[in-house]
């Protein structure tokens, strides 16, 4: 299991490093959206709430290209090849980890760019950093199985958003609330939010882990 996990992660990262499909799609999407929001608003919007919402909406929609991680295996007929050597569970967990890495990277880049373009001041820097990290990895964990489903029906993008929105809404609501507080002068503790994200993503992660072998077959 561990062997399969490590080899799959190395393989996925190496392929991603060579083809750059997912990361370029996600980055160009998120950067373009962030900058166009900056252009459109001219830096006028002021409310911390609005900033938090915009920031997380950008990150959420950037995530829809992560289904390419699974789609690539199907399109290139490597899914069965992979299954010949490793269990579906280790494939799932490795994709989940790669997905997390990508989403955290995206959150970091989009977050910094957003702060820069929109001139937002962060009062609680550590809280904000933790929220970006926890929120984006929770999003990644909960949407990995959706990414697999959309990859299997080869209707990515739109379907991914439709399917993942109702499920990730708790995450989005909670992180928007906490991020708003980081942008304003209120003193707050992010522990309850983090605990919630942890509980929710663990639950969905475990259920996805159990269900994944049922869909990742018959290629």
């Amino acid at each position: 299991m561990i062997k399969g996990l490590v080899r799959n992660i190395v393989k996925d990262l190496r392929i991603e490093f060579r083809s750059k499909v997912v990361i370029s799609l996600i980055l160009s999407f998120s950067v373009i959206v962030t900058i166009s929001i900056g252009f459109a608003s001219g830096g006028i919007i002021g409310s911390p709430m609005v900033h938090a919402i915009l920031l997380w909406v950008i990150i959420f929609f950037s995530g829809m290209n992560t289904s390419h991680l699974f789609y690539r295996e199907i399109e290139e007929h490597t899914a069965l090849f992979n299954l010949m050597y490793y269990s579906p569970e280790s494939i799932f967990v490795s994709k989940l980890i790669v997905n997390c890495i990508i989403m955290v990277a995206v959150a970091a880049i989009v977050g910094l760019l957003y702060l820069f373009v929109m001139d937002v001041s962060v009062y609680n820097v550590s809280g904000f950093a933790i929220m970006m990290l926890a929120g984006s990895s929770a999003l990644a964990v909960c949407t990995t199985i959706i990414a697999a489903i959309t990859a299997l029906v080869q209707a990515r993008g739109g379907l991914f958003t439709i399917l993942s929105f109702p499920i990730t809404l708790p995450i989005i609501t909670v992180v928007i609330k906490s991020t708003t507080q980081c942008f304003s002068k209120e003193i707050y503790s992010s522990w309850s939010a983090i605990l919630f994200l942890l509980a929710f993503s663990t639950l969905l992660g475990v259920v996805s882990y159990i269900l994944f072998p049922y869909i990742w077959r018959e290629f």
Partner: peptide
């Protein structure tokens, strides 16, 4: 499937890896 070796048109090795990397991926 763990006991099986498959050669078929619907199965492909990883195209973005070299043959050596494919072998290392599968067998270490």
């Amino acid at each position: 499937i763990h006991y099986a070796g498959i050669v078929a048109p619907y199965i492909q090795c990883y195209n973005h890896l070299t043959l050596t990397e494919n072998i290392i991926f599968a067998f270490g």
